[in-house]
């Protein structure tokens, strides 16, 4: 535990000072700020940020994460030659990567809200889901980044994998769902589709925000099935839990690979 904290301390120093994280924070800040200046009130800004959170945050997390772990490879070996356990070293490395990215997101998006948004009760729901989604997606995709970079010694493979996984989750997955829906139109598909949605972190993040903005539509048609599942607090907890699981699984895998790996 102490090893983890010690590693984390210096990793934080290092990652926080990295230019990429600075640029990421600044980009999120400027974008949110501009949305406020042009779009106006809070709920609409949250809506405009939806795609940023669902696409950009995972992309940055997985690509920056993978590159970072590769660039730290030699130093990681030096650390491994110190009298420390691999498990705690791994935890320190992961947190040292994920926390600055999560912080960058919080700061970059949160600050403009603190400056511009009026404190209305109606904004809390959408805003909390925006942050919950953004943070969980950061943790999920940095965990994926760790796994890829540790699994593949070849950087091109790891980075390619990162982009593929992002593309898969962000775009292709929904295309496949749509294809399945049109192919099996005569079957009741609500439940299978629901299950498929639970497997993709980006879809889960999207559903969290759908529940804030599109309840009226979800109540229509068979959509009510989705609303009935996700709209309850149980459903919401399920979504958050599923996201937490999706961060944990690649993380545990990465940790296992890391502990057994020959460097």
């Amino acid at each position: 535990m102490t090893t983890t904290v010690r590693v984390l301390k210096y990793e934080l120093h290092n990652v926080v000072r990295s230019r990429a994280v600075l640029v990421y924070t600044l980009f999120l800040f400027l974008l949110t700020d501009v949305l406020f200046r042009f779009g106006g009130e809070g709920a609409r800004v949250v809506l405009s940020l939806l795609n940023v959170v669902l696409l950009f945050v995972p992309l940055v997390s997985v690509v920056f994460g993978t590159m970072y772990v590769y660039s730290a490879r030699e130093f990681t070996e030096l650390l491994l030659a110190q009298p420390v356990g691999r498990r705690s070293l791994f935890a320190g490395l992961y947190l040292g990567l994920a926390l600055p990215l999560a912080g960058a997101f919080l700061l970059g998006v949160g600050l403009p809200f603190a400056i511009h948004a009026k404190a209305e009760a109606a904004l809390w729901g959408p805003l909390s889901m925006l942050f919950a989604g953004g943070l969980l997606l950061t943790f999920v995709f940095t965990a994926v980044a760790m796994l890829l970079a540790i699994l593949f010694d070849d950087r091109a493979k790891g980075l390619g994998g990162a982009i593929l996984i992002w593309l898969g989750c962000a775009v292709l997955y929904d295309g496949v769902i749509l294809l399945l829906i049109t192919m099996f139109r005569e079957y009741p598909l609500e439940r299978p589709v629901l299950a498929l949605t639970l497997l993709n972190p980006i879809d889960l993040g999207r559903v969290l925000l759908l529940l804030q903005f599109d309840t009226a539509a979800l109540m229509g048609y068979t959509g009510a099935v989705f609303e009935k599942f996700f709209g309850t607090s149980l459903g919401r907890v399920t979504v958050l839990l599923a996201l937490a699981v999706q961060a944990t699984v690649p993380l545990l895998l990465a940790s296992r690979v890391f502990r057994r790996k020959d460097f």
Binding site: Y10, N14, S18, E74, F75, L78
Partner: peptide, 16 residues
């Protein structure tokens, strides 16, 4: 490893 000193061949330290 407490009693070990290691000098790797191509050292890279955290950039920042």
């Amino acid at each position: 490893r407490r009693g070990l000193g290691y000098m790797p061949q191509a050292p890279r330290f955290p950039d920042n």
